[in-house]
Design a binder for these strands. Structure first.
Lengths: 345, 345
DNA sequence: GCGACGGGATGTATCGTTTCACTACGAAGC
DNA sequence: GCTTCGTAGTGAAACGATACATCCCGTCGC
């Protein structure tokens, strides 16, 4: 009986009002403050809304309200499980507050990051969560000047001009290397990604700290530099280690799990047993770390919680206005010991 | 010298016009059709825009234009590398067209999917790319009635009422099992996820087809059912296989790579050598497949291309209007042979 | 010298919603 | 019977950008 319903491109509040025999203001009230509308009227309007298939126009609401009901999340690499888990945490929290998340992938490129920040600014998002490619971006500064809350994720705020959440990477590096030292390892290698990345530098610093505390010299840590934080780089480093005839390290600490998986693969290929011949420690504790052929010992970061907390701080700042106090939250990482590490014989 | 610039909440086109001494229409023209504005005027306006830090209000544009410059992408699981790669393809293509992507994670829940579709409808998105949780959703139908293009991703269109892109999963299953049969394997196991998932059913069907063609009976395929398409399920199945004392299969075909990784891990743990004692084939060819301790033979799906194509079809439909013809694109999967499979001795 | 022309700029209605100020009207208080 | 009050509903002005119709004015052709 309703087969003649046809392609109405869009039903506006005005048509609903006409259909229900009330003013547009009343329809708006039904939508936003139903309690102030008398019961019979309210029901009549609701019926019209359902019958006409009316759906609010978010653009119009936003225009009127001056800001949107979305937040932006800018990450370095959506393909990295670390960031997907983080995104998941952000999404959960945003959903709870009735906000949508625009997920932007800067791909480690300043150009893309800039473009996305402009887009988010045009959309008048309620706030931005970002792991910045570089320290200070002019777009970011402009967003803040406009009054848009910005929370730095996994990147300590240098200026204290904003909120930030991060994990104590120095402690993480310390934990990893302490674990290896306690297991009796004398000769430890550190596979480092680009030192310009703060996380890499901090984890390295933590490694040195552990060494010092154990009364060892910095030179005792054999550093192998690789170009990126991915599996391929780990394989290259692994090949180098396998090629060492004398003085091969008995343990390796990798800047992240992707590298560790690459190293592990090379060890297997060269019949170097893990952990009997060499121990491996990764970082991030991504799901694939536990599922590796030799389950990886890794430093776990509270990824989802990181996302949730960041989102909550953003919402709080957004609501709090002038009264808001910026804060820096630092989480503690945790060492998860699995089969890829063992004591020296 | 510009330190007194302060918290202007937002600069509108009107203020730019006043600053440059022109009308708002001219500012709009500079923004949208710069060629029709005289050079000196254009420069003056541009200078004002820069000085005041003006950024367009996307909501207002959208309201006027009647539709937004964003598209929605609804996936089942952002944590699955298959979907992140797909999203990457969509994003690239959307970016090229100057569109933003709202990434929604339905988490395999009908409730969340529905909520997201409502949100996308409120945002008047230009189109929706979706891997639906269930076949037909009323929200989806309503979106289409409104005239919003919808493209089904990785899910063959049942009604032909819309565009779709998918990969030939029957062929994929066929390729995998044919490969094993050609290598001389007589006793093959299939680790199946929930059969209600179309992909699972299709891959199974393909496996049977290969068997038939080789003159073998369906009963020759040993089916092991598991509850989900993840690593944990694979481990469970792997444990079952390891426990078999007699008649253990010499090859396993897994519904996806996560399961395959789980199986591989269990084999290693039980000192069952891969591929000497047992061959393993996965599905999806995620990056971690190549990086596994024993690099996995897997059926590759053109993930990024899937995303790109879907996005392109959506844009085309969005532009084409009435003239548009719905089409179903089916990609062919490809078998990538690595070290996890070998011929029987 | 006058009309036609056209490049360049402008005035303003419009998109859909929200909200503020206001009206209508019956009930209650004195 | 008049004022006061409260409840329910309405009119209309925003929000910011766009685009259509229009206008202004200097040039050119004849």
């Amino acid at each position: 009986m309703s087969s003649q319903k046809r392609v109405r491109v869009s039903v506006s509040i005005r048509e609903v009002a006409a259909h229900a025999g009330v003013s547009v203001a009343t329809v708006s009230n039904v939508l936003n403050r139903p309690d102030i509308v008398a019961r019979p009227t309210r029901d009549r309007v609701s019926a019209s809304i359902a019958e006409l298939g009316f759906v609010r126009n978010e653009s119009a609401r936003q225009l009127r309200a001056g800001r949107s009901r979305t937040i932006g999340l800018v990450v370095l690499d959506v393909a990295n499980p670390f960031f997907t888990d983080l995104a998941r945490g952000v999404e959960d929290e945003a959903n709870k507050a009735g906000l949508a998340v625009i997920l932007c992938n800067s791909d480690d490129q300043e150009r893309k990051e800039k473009r996305y920040l402009e887009l988010l600014e045009e959309h008048r998002v309620q706030g931005v969560l970002i792991t910045p490619v570089v320290g200070a971006s002019s777009r970011l500064a402009r967003l803040q000047r406009r009054g848009t809350p910005v929370v730095l994720v996994d990147s300590r705020s240098p200026s204290r001009g904003q909120c930030s959440v991060a994990v104590d990477d120095v402690l993480g590096g310390d934990l990893a290397v302490s674990h290896l030292l306690e297991a009796g390892h004398q000769h430890i290698a550190f596979i480092a990604g680009p030192r310009t990345i703060r996380q890499v530098a901090d984890r390295f610093e933590g490694a040195l700290r552990a060494l010092e505390r154990a009364g060892r010299r910095h030179e005792d840590l054999h550093v192998i530099d690789v170009g990126a934080l991915n599996v391929a780089s780990g394989q290259k480093a692994g090949a180098d280690i396998a090629a060492m005839t004398a003085g091969r390290p008995t343990a390796v600490f990798c800047t992240n799990d992707l590298i560790a998986l690459g190293v592990l693969q090379e060890m297997t290929r060269h019949k170097i047993r893990v952990p009997e011949d060499i121990s491996i420690v990764g970082y991030d504790d991504i799901d694939f770390a536990a599922a590796a052929a030799v389950p990886l010992t890794s430093v776990r970061q509270p990824r989802q919680q990181l996302g949730r907390t960041a989102a909550r701080m953003l919402l709080e700042e957004s609501a709090g206005g002038e009264a808001h106090q910026h804060q820096q939250v630092i989480f503690e990482p945790e060492l998860i010991v699995r089969q890829s590490t063992a004591a020296t014989r």
